[in-house]
Amino acid sequence: MYILSVCGMGFGTSLMLLMDIQAMAKEHGYTVDGEASDLGSAKGKNCSFMVASSEIASELSGESVPVISIDNLLDKNEIKEKVLPIIEKLSKE
């Protein structure tokens, strides 16, 4: 599975989010590949799902892949509760 983490500029919060997700996935026995991207280049990109802060996620509503919206990027529980189920689901497909 390949995920895209998205923020306004594509190098700060999105990278932090990607690393948090990869670490969380690893703890649960999954390997997640992905890249951090800025909003402009994220649109239309091929990936399993996208994840972004709620502000950015609302701009990605036209995407064909699921877009997960995170309100509090510092809350590891919120990230786990929202992202782990989709990782588990995709791993079974």
């Binding site: 306004g8 500029m9 700060g12 919060t13 502000e55 809350d75």
Partner: peptide
């Protein structure tokens, strides 16, 4: 410039903003 172009997403958690650039 980053804030004006891409908006308030730098408010990453309740009450906390983290402006940054390249």
């Amino acid at each position: 410039e980053g804030f004006q172009n891409v908006g308030p997403y730098i408010v990453i958690a309740p009450g906390i903003a983290i402006p940054h650039s390249r």
